[in-house]
Nucleic acid binder design. Sequence first.
DNA 1: TGGGCATACTCGTATAGACGAGTGGGCAAG
DNA 2: CTTGCCCACTCGTCTATACGAGTATGCCCA
Lengths: 262, 262
Amino acid sequence: MAALPSGLLGALDPTSDRAVFRQIADQIREAIDKGRFKEGAKLPSEAELVEHFGVSRMTVRNSISQLQGEGLVSSEHGKGVFVRPRPPVRRLASDRFARRHREQGKAAFTVEAEAAGSRPEVDSLEVKEERASQDISARLGSVRKVLSRRRRYLLDGRPVEFATSYLPLDLARGTQIAEPNPGPGGIYARLEELGRHLDHFDEEVQARMPSQEETKMLRLAAGVPVIHLVRTAYDSEGRAVEVCDTVMAADAYVLAYQLPAN
Amino acid sequence: MAALPSGLLGALDPTSDRAVFRQIADQIREAIDKGRFKEGAKLPSEAELVEHFGVSRMTVRNSISQLQGEGLVSSEHGKGVFVRPRPPVRRLASDRFARRHREQGKAAFTVEAEAAGSRPEVDSLEVKEERASQDISARLGSVRKVLSRRRRYLLDGRPVEFATSYLPLDLARGTQIAEPNPGPGGIYARLEELGRHLDHFDEEVQARMPSQEETKMLRLAAGVPVIHLVRTAYDSEGRAVEVCDTVMAADAYVLAYQLPAN
DNA sequence: TGGGCATACTCGTATAGACGAGTGGGCAAG
DNA sequence: CTTGCCCACTCGTCTATACGAGTATGCCCA
């Protein structure tokens, strides 16, 4: 076992009140912040850290799990612990559903991804008729039965979001909206063809830690929250025509909005 | 040590591949989901769980730390582990900076909080002249020196967000904007009095786990992400007049936006 | 050359024990 | 009755050890 390259990590302060495992986490965090460990770089192994700091392995593991919770590092069984690289973020502009973007045909996700030089995929598409949950029903204006469209989006093979759209069943049944492939311009284009001129969207944004299932669906590393976005589409008569419930890997997105000042 | 009330938690499956500490976490998670432990309720103590599942204490602690990372529970030294109550969320509407809300005088935060029946406070106010960071400078349009206003907001004694506003120094120096109390309607009202008619705001929203300092400033429990919001205000000539960098406790907020459809 | 295996290194899981420190209730002394 | 202390219970920190499982590498043998 080779000694740690000197200068990478300092020593503990035995007189400090701060718990040893926190001091170790502090040292590593500082080393990452100062660039002594770069993005994607491998940290010293647990055994090396044990040696360097003269503590037991559980203490070192405790430090590392601290840093994992902060989203700073992620460990890979059999390989090591690595500084978590910041993946390229996808910027969602507030005009991304503007009609003009719809006219050309392709789905917004595909167009954007290809423009950014990524390979987009859509996955696990499922179209179903079901009873609306209380929340969805309220958002759609007391609708009982809905058509749900569930799908997952990937960029370069990495899942980044999954979403479920809910539409009033009497509106969507028998239309192309009920097909797996809703055609050029997506379901919003189909809604307008059905005479529902879209007026505006409401979006509600929250952030939280993922559930077990979300961690699996998005293959999330420890310490990565999700953004939960619920969008409701309204037609020009003020009727809600669609609710889209989206869960996104928070490290893959920045949402951009424009607000008027009056 | 009393036995656990039966029915609250099940047993382990020794034939399962799933790690014991995960199985225990699963059991507790399910019990919470199904309402067998309510919000704010105390979980069985570590000793009781050790007894119930017949495992060592470190294994139980591992399970609990798993649940903490998910934001489901939080532990309090000397008291126990509790199901994390969902605090009341503050809804930020996209018209919250509309001019009409400014005319009346009070700060937006105060008005909103009082309307919701909470006790608002503003804290650690600090006004400074400083050199703009690269990011802030870029957002303000190559401004070198800025006035920064830093403050923290609390609801019923709980810190929920802290924010720093940056304004071009040549714009703000010597005005009431440079005073700790910017007067009725806040700095946006002062900017308009200075002839800078506000046109719109850009907001960028990201979510991530908090840094050490943010955890302290917002007194965040484990497993609570932050929402990082950067707002830029533009006047009617398209000049950026303010950048506000805000970090919010994600469990205290839902952001609401309205997007036009064309 | 190519395939497969042994091996050494990585992190993952689990045990058992010890002591420290925060909290709250009950009891005893004033 | 009030005050203050002690104790029991809680989680926090740390050690030492053991074995399992995933990964990479190099060597040997076919």
